[in-house]
Amino acid sequence: MGSKNKLKRFRENETFPNVIQPTREEVLEGFSKKGKWNTFFNNNNPIVLELGCGKGEYTIALARKNPNINYIGIDIKGARFWRGAKTAIEENLTNVAFIRTQIELVDFIFAENEIDEIWITFPDPQIKYTRTKHRMTNAEFLKKYHHVLKPDGFVNLKTDSEFMHGYTLGLLHGAGHEVIYAHHDIYKNAHSPEEVISTQTFYESQYLEVNKPITYIKFRVRY
């Protein structure tokens, strides 16, 4: 994407009512929407996050299917989720929002027990050991998710990375967290949850065309 195109999208994002772009300082010093997201959506419906939402494809797809659930996509790259934000406006999806910020700040953006569910879709597996702290299912991230999720809230991890799948399963079992469902190839499993296989990102459909397995884990963080 050219720099001019990026700048155009950044400017357009600033005009979208469904895009929030706080500075890091605003988030760390007391984010105004923390604990008040139902006021932002003007309802008391459940709130679901997609972390590292990219173009917002999953956020949009889920919002279309579930109008009585509020969806928030989070990514640091605003030029990417511009597409999702614009689609939501074009289709009058009032249950969608996007936040441009670092995922590591999730517990500063949302209050304790404010979130019902989290989706992590095709994250960078950060395979090198030196990148462990950036893996979105490492122990520190799980603590953050536990803080913002309601007591019975859960996390969904969908990935094409066998490494990420295995790493996460091992960590969950080792720490005594609750694995609700796990499979290493959901499209070849007759018992895969419908909401998981009926929603696909663009890249996911490309993986499937070349028979690349898609893995999935649904779990609760328990402490």
Rank of each mutant, 00 (worst) to 15 (best):
M1K: 05
M1N: 11
G2Y: 08
K6N: 13
K8R: 13
K8P: 01
K8Q: 11
K8M: 09
F10V: 13
F10D: 10
E12Y: 09
E12K: 06
N13H: 04
E14W: 08
F16D: 02
F16P: 03
P17W: 00
N18P: 00
N18S: 01
R24N: 01
E25A: 07
V27R: 12
L28G: 07
L28W: 01
G30Q: 04
G35H: 03
N38E: 01
F40N: 01
F41D: 00
F41R: 00
N44W: 00
I47V: 15
V48T: 15
L49Q: 13
L51N: 10
L51G: 12
G52Q: 07
C53A: 14
C53N: 08
K55C: 09
G56H: 10
Y58A: 12
T59H: 08
I60F: 04
A61Q: 12
A61D: 09
L62T: 00
R64E: 06
N66Q: 05
N66G: 08
P67L: 13
I69Y: 00
N70T: 05
Y71Q: 02
I76K: 11
I76T: 12
K77Q: 15
K77W: 04
A79W: 13
F81A: 08
W82F: 15
W82S: 11
K86M: 06
T87S: 10
E90M: 10
E91S: 06
E91I: 11
L93S: 00
T94E: 11
T94C: 01
A97W: 02
T101N: 00
Q102S: 14
L105S: 10
F108T: 04
E112F: 05
E117S: 11
I118K: 14
W119H: 15
P123R: 13
I127P: 14
T132N: 15
T132C: 07
N138C: 14
A139H: 10
F141W: 14
F141S: 06
K143H: 11
H147Q: 14
H147D: 09
L149Q: 07
L149Y: 05
L149T: 12
V155R: 14
V155H: 13
N156S: 15
L157A: 14
L157S: 14
K158H: 14
E162K: 13
M164C: 10
Y167D: 08
Y167K: 15
Y167R: 13
T168Y: 03
T168S: 15
G170M: 06
G170E: 11
G174P: 01
G176M: 04
V179W: 00
I180N: 02
H183S: 10
H183K: 13
D185H: 10
I186M: 04
Y187H: 15
K188T: 08
A190W: 03
A190H: 03
H191C: 05
S192I: 01
P193Q: 12
E194K: 12
E195A: 02
I197G: 00
I197H: 07
S198P: 00
T199K: 08
T201E: 03
F202Q: 09
F202N: 10
Y203S: 02
E204A: 02
S205T: 06
Y207E: 01
E209R: 09
N211E: 02
N211L: 10
P213W: 07
I214C: 12
I214W: 05
I214M: 11
Y216S: 10
Y216R: 11
I217N: 08
K218T: 06
R220E: 04
R222S: 09
R222L: 13
